[in-house]
Design a protein around this nucleic acid. Sequence first.
DNA 1: CATGAATGAGAATTCATTCAT
DNA 2: TATGAATGAATTCTCATTCAT
Lengths: 183, 183, 183, 183
Amino acid sequence: MTEFQEYGFHGANLSRIAQRAGIAKGTIYLYYDSKEALFLAAVGKHVVSIMGESEAQVDVPGGTTKELLIHFLRGMYNRFVDSEAQAVFRILIAEGDRMPEVMRDYHAMTVQRGTTLLSKILERGVARGEVRPGSVVRMPHVLMAPTVFFAVHDMMFKNVKPVDFDSFFEAHIDMLMNGCLID
Amino acid sequence: MTEFQEYGFHGANLSRIAQRAGIAKGTIYLYYDSKEALFLAAVGKHVVSIMGESEAQVDVPGGTTKELLIHFLRGMYNRFVDSEAQAVFRILIAEGDRMPEVMRDYHAMTVQRGTTLLSKILERGVARGEVRPGSVVRMPHVLMAPTVFFAVHDMMFKNVKPVDFDSFFEAHIDMLMNGCLID
Amino acid sequence: MTEFQEYGFHGANLSRIAQRAGIAKGTIYLYYDSKEALFLAAVGKHVVSIMGESEAQVDVPGGTTKELLIHFLRGMYNRFVDSEAQAVFRILIAEGDRMPEVMRDYHAMTVQRGTTLLSKILERGVARGEVRPGSVVRMPHVLMAPTVFFAVHDMMFKNVKPVDFDSFFEAHIDMLMNGCLID
Amino acid sequence: MTEFQEYGFHGANLSRIAQRAGIAKGTIYLYYDSKEALFLAAVGKHVVSIMGESEAQVDVPGGTTKELLIHFLRGMYNRFVDSEAQAVFRILIAEGDRMPEVMRDYHAMTVQRGTTLLSKILERGVARGEVRPGSVVRMPHVLMAPTVFFAVHDMMFKNVKPVDFDSFFEAHIDMLMNGCLID
DNA sequence: CATGAATGAGAATTCATTCAT
DNA sequence: TATGAATGAATTCTCATTCAT
């Protein structure tokens, strides 16, 4: 994965991969039929391993809707901060076209899972009178958007102009609570 | 660019590029020293061309803060929906490491410019009493996050599960106006 | 042998050979030092096995010279029609250069043995007044030439334009009896 | 061709071929898509070039049937003695299976052409009363069989026990004139 | 200026051979 | 004795780069 992430599929070099793995070049072919197969397996495996972690995150404890949201979103940020997760993310943006099934899986365990859980939290919140019903509840993607933005910004501009996580997270929570406008 | 976007830097093929451009392979070397130089030039040029368009967007007309925000954000979405802009975006995610200066430029004309403009709008809004001061105003990135999310989602999951733009945009605006929580 | 015949020496694959033999790849090396050694042993063994069969053919019963010749030549055709014998023949044509000793053996038990026996038959025929003395008796190769031609033609052109054996054999005998010219 | 003949298709080595040709490895791929394509082209071209020579041989001058046969057969021997022709012959025996069309061509310009011409000569001979009608006339393959035998013997056993050409040719002619039996 | 044939270093892949078990 | 995972040299093929025209 590291190799694929650093160089992309075409740029990745099987000699280097073997070297990193501490095995001989030929050994790779005992386990994978081709570079492509290795690549797909590597990405697929990582995607699954992320799913595993995310499984744990889904099982949220009780609390106010605000607490639940904060807990959930912090979990998402944590996952995205992980460099392996970022590697998978980056490579799927770059090379996703060659692996539609992997993309389906990845979508299921990130966006799908995230929005489903958010929906539950929000709907329970609406029932409790803690959440204002409306288009945000129907499209909870916008609530998790800042996590993705942060990940992308981190990947791209870490060395240009990093964003302070705590401030960003605070603003994120602030926005989702009250928006920024006064009506 | 098309070639680089479709195959990545390593996967791109100079013969194919020459063919697409209707010139001979050797001719490329009259204008660029190497594949890398061509790549950087191509990306740089596209980044600049985006900057040009964005320049126009910056010059917003008057109106309420809400109207200004809607106008500005809609402009951002429009730019990201453009396939060329997405190509640049995607390639910078994938290969940004090899061109720090380009990344600096790209940051300047996207995040930097966007947040600067948002800051102006928001600060004017605060002065006008239309905007609630607080962490969002100090970190306007969270306001543009959904545009980036939408672009990323579009790039990755167009074929898996596309998100309806109008609903998304509506939710975005809804969130930034009031948040989703009732205090 | 099957493997070597199908793919030639270089094309033959030791994994496949082991598989066909129902043993592990490494086991081959308990019995043979190298691919080359295995090849030579396989060919040598097959050559010897052909010799064994040919031994039986040599012991011809009495009769007229014509009967003897027909009996002997029919035996040669029969041997060449056998697919294993053709396999050996083909592989020796293709790879004979790498095994001069095998070629010597093969020559001894095919051409040498055949011409020796033919000589005996012909000389007895001359003594009996059944055979016209002359250059054919001194070079009996020409009498067996059609058997080789038939084998080669069969190997090469079976699927292009096969030759009917019975007609060919009849013509062969006809020719050796009277030639085709009238003096 | 030399390379292919010496090592067979699998054993042939593109580096060596390039070296022999005095060009770089990559240059081959400007003209042929693959090793297989190069191989087929090489064999096909040689097969055609042989056809060209053989064309000339077909145009026989007048004379007695015996003279015509001697002239024609000598021509065949001459062609088979040529080392390039033997190379093609050998390689087609070894690798003919992979190129049915080439085999068809080769058959057409060797066996087909040879037997057709022989048939003409023999039928004219029958009409002239010089040739005994019978199965040999209907299957002239047996008349050219010794040429093939000689070629095969030469290829295989040159270094084991070469056959003297003049004696062989004499015996060949002797046989086709009178056979070897006295009736 | 432009070409595109030629180059050759480099990459993916294969496979005879070894060796710890 | 037998295994088969591991090796790495060798091979086919690609492609950025050069240069004579």
